[in-house]
């Protein structure tokens, strides 16, 4: 696969490490959320046959974490964003 890195352009997926669902960005605050919330955060996933937002790490590149929107059926990639931008947009300021 080819991932169109927002900064570096098309790069072979071989350079990346895959982590999983981009919902891993939405980590609860450990001082306020309890075990249940963390359980859901860590273990509850949708497993869509279709569009999926997922985290890829450009380990053999610029070390950016990316949020890749990929169709799990066709492998078509429709969007690639820097994860830190996504995290900020989701309100992760703490």
């Amino acid at each position: 696969m080819i991932i169109h890195h927002p900064i570096l352009g098309p790069r072979d997926a071989q350079e990346f490490v895959y982590l999983g669902d981009a919902s891993l960005i939405d980590r609860p605050d450990g001082m306020t959320a309890g075990v249940e919330a963390f359980h859901d955060y860590l273990y509850q996933r949708t497993n869509p046959a279709g569009e999926h937002q997922e985290l890829w790490y450009h380990e053999q590149g610029d070390r950016s974490w990316l949020v890749v929107t990929r169709n799990t059926v066709t492998h078509e990639i429709t969007k690639v964003e820097l994860a830190r931008d996504v995290a900020r947009a989701r309100g992760r300021t703490k």
Partner: peptide, 14 residues
Amino acid sequence: FRHLEFCRQCLWPE
């Protein structure tokens, strides 16, 4: 190192 980058970029970008 990968994990630290994840924490830095995805969890606490500020």
